[in-house]
């Protein structure tokens, strides 16, 4: 007997459907804060169904679009395009043999089906990533971006700290929490940003990397801060091109189709026009947090 649960992330509803007894239900704790009431199909961006016997005829999915082999930390991914314009994804965890999730997504990204394999933990991990992919595809044209950032909320405004892995995004967040009164972690890895009626909003999400911080909260975006390690603490505004590049490199995207990359470009342009972007060179210390907070909180939203 199938059960359906609907979730709402950044104001976008989606449903998960699977057998009521499936062990995967026990691994969706990070989604619990985002549970919402069942709603009409029209009000959902996608439905993902878990199947035991997913039909993925390889003759119809003959075009390989993309292949990335699994690496130390990164998931392996293969993407095929089918005759009907639908997609087939193969996800493989590092250090496992074979494919841990096979995901079929319709050409309009609204209907998805997945079959998971491997140990229970591997299946749960792959299923989580499957949901991220579905969300990414279904929101690509909706002025919505899944960011790679650590995000805090302070005095009702959201700030995103971005940068390469190992730069100290989480560290900088924790410095704000420690030294800047009124600041709280919103999400430590993959917050969502979205333009709602012309206002840029930051949302918590069920995806937060190694920090279990799955908060269903939102706040208007106050600033995007790109972090770089430095000997001194220094901060400056980025010009529009730098801002665009900064957001582009820190947002997830599956830009293999013109319509998907056009959607992303549109969202990026909206955000850089509305929100100040900064480049901060910093040490992991109290002064860095204070300099950053003093600078970015003073700034009024962009007017250009």
């Amino acid at each position: 007997m199938d059960t359906t649960q609907t979730y709402r992330v950044a104001g976008h509803n989606f449903s998960v459907q699977m057998d009521a007894t499936s062990a995967l239900w026990n691994h969706l704790g990070n989604y619990a804060p985002f549970e919402t009431q069942a709603c009409d199909e029209k009000e959902k961006i996608f439905t993902l169904r878990v199947e035991d016997d997913l039909q993925t005829d390889f003759h119809t999915f003959s075009t390989l679009l993309l292949r990335k082999d699994p690496e130390a930390e990164a998931l392996g991914l293969e993407v095929y395009k089918g005759a009907q314009g639908d997609y087939l994804f193969h996800l493989s965890l590092p250090h496992t043999d074979g494919v841990n999730a096979r995901l079929r997504v319709s050409s309009d990204y609204r209907t998805a089906a997945v079959q998971t394999e491997g140990s229970e933990a591997a299946q749960a991990f792959a299923f989580n990533r499957t949901l991220m992919i579905c969300y990414l595809l279904a929101t690509a044209k909706l002025d919505t971006l899944l960011m790679h950032a650590s995000a805090i909320v302070c005095d009702g405004k959201g700030y995103l700290f971005m940068g390469k892995s190992g730069t100290g995004k989480s560290t900088h967040s924790s410095l704000w929490i420690k030294y800047i009164e009124g600041s709280k972690l919103m999400n430590d890895d993959n917050p969502v940003i979205r333009i709602v009626h012309g206002v840029p909003i930051l949302y918590g999400s069920p995806w937060s990397g190694k920090t279990p911080c799955y908060r269903n909260v939102s706040a208007p975006v106050g600033g995007f801060i790109r972090l770089k390690q430095g000997a001194e603490n220094r901060i400056r505004r980025q010009n529009p091109i730098e801002s665009y590049a900064s957001l582009l490199s820190s947002s997830s995207g599956m830009a293999w189709e013109q319509s998907l990359s056009d959607g992303k470009d549109c969202a990026l342009q909206h955000f850089i026009a509305l929100v100040p972007c900064w480049l901060m060179e910093c040490r992991p210390d109290e002064e860095a947090a204070r300099l950053c907070a003093d600078t970015v909180r003073k700034e009024e939203p962009c007017n250009d």
Binding site: L65, P240, I241, Y244, A245, A255, S261, Q269
Partner: peptide
Amino acid sequence: FKLRNVAGQTVITGEGLKQIDFNKLIS
């Protein structure tokens, strides 16, 4: 590669499948 206009300036972004790892913006 795709030519785009960002805030009045012309830039090149890598967008197709072949450039999925092209993490640069060329002004």
